[in-house]
Design a protein around this nucleic acid. Structure first.
Lengths: 217, 217
DNA sequence: CAATTGACTGAGCGCTTGCTTACCGGGCAT
DNA sequence: ATGCCCGGTAAGCAAGCGCTCAGTCAATTG
């Protein structure tokens, strides 16, 4: 049988939740346990496929306790996506931002991909299920996404200006790099055993190839 | 405001279903209308987020009529993913398969990406929700996916053999190209107005860049 | 010690879900 | 005309859903 690199495993998914201190420190221990359980449920079965009882059971709490800490199931989901986007933004902003556009893009993609592999369950919620949010919550997430996109756009545009990157397809390059990076959340935990770092190294190399036109053209 | 290339639109999604004759010709007209309605519902809200009543209402049928044509909601979903994978495979196999690995990979990715843009609603079901299938149905889909992967692997391995493609990371290249291609189903219909053909042209170019190591390295 | 608090419980409400069943009407061979 | 499929309907069932709320009890306060 050929090596398989697509998500076609049939066993149980090896999804893992972030450490409790990934979540907002203002939340109680129980609330953070709830988020850890919820993010696993959402990654496995999506928003509509998870029951509030599954979430509370996973945190060793009763069914009603969820509603002492969150207004609704949607509020739980929102808190996950909010934390996820804020943490992503913080990781990207921690980059010094020096060096050539090539060096900077490689570092940014590396950070971004490693984040999506390490926090693949959070990433799934952030990238694949935003449509379940209320209009207000969705708008708040979109604002964060624009900030994240602007970081990448800034580097790609600068690289286009000095002709290291493809100036003709900046939007296409940005979208392709984004696609490449976040699709990690779809298969990570299902397929393969690579470390977040090795995936980040490989994919940031690919991102540079996407952005850089071959010399012949 | 900066151009936005991520899925952050707030209006209604512009999802479109395939023509009725996309579906198995053995099925009745009503059954194909049902599938057309179902694929839109599933694309919008996922498997667990759509009710069987939404599906039948979209086909202008009563609630019970779904069960005169399909055994269950899962059977409807399976029929969609089955048809989708079979059609994808047929489109890829229609390629003559001649020319250099570069030419062949470009054509294959172009076909694959155009398919996922044109049939973005079917593609969403095929790429993002397979976990809802029963074990038997899932195994059937996985078999089709292996055939699809083998087509791409064949070309990439051949290109690696004659040093046009990256021989060190064949699995990584395959997965990256796959990620790039199928992520189209996540944003197409939500964001942007490009034609399937123009996306296919751009992304097949990117796929070649991913597979081809830069001369310096 | 009694009084108060607050995190947590779990039975259960109102409603929705996937699916079943009893039924209907028109075309068709006899 | 008659009987009979057959594609489709309408009503409804049992189970499950998100969410509520009166109540429990250990910890804290005075």
């Amino acid at each position: 049988m050929a090596t398989r690199v697509w998500n076609d495993q049939t066993g149980p998914a090896r999804y893992v939740a972030p450490d409790p201190d990934f979540w907002d420190p203002k939340l109680s221990d129980a609330a953070r346990r709830l988020l850890g359980s919820a993010v696993l449920c959402f990654a496995r079965n999506g928003f509509y496929g998870t029951r509030t009882r599954d979430i509370s059971a996973g945190a060793k709490l009763s069914a009603g306790s969820l509603y002492t800490m969150f207004d609704s199931k949607e509020a739980v989901f929102f808190e996950i996506t909010r934390s996820g986007h804020i943490d992503t933004l913080a990781c990207l902003n921690a980059d010094p931002g020096d060096g050539t556009p090539t060096e900077r893009l490689q570092r940014l993609v590396s950070i971004y991909v490693e984040w999506h592999a390490r926090y693949h369950t959070v990433g799934r919620a952030c990238q694949h299920d935003l449509a379940v949010l209320t209009e207000e919550h969705f708008a708040e997430i979109v604002e964060l996404r624009h900030q994240i996109e602007a970081i990448f756009r800034n580097v790609v545009e600068e690289g286009a200006k000095d002709n290291t990157f493809d100036a003709a397809d900046i939007d296409g390059v940005l979208r392709a790099i984004h696609s490449l990076s976040i699709d990690v959340t779809r298969w990570y935990g299902l397929d393969g055993t690579e470390s977040p770092q090795s995936i980040a190294a490989l994919y940031s190399k690919f991102a540079l190839r996407i952005a850089t036109p071959p010399p012949s053209s």
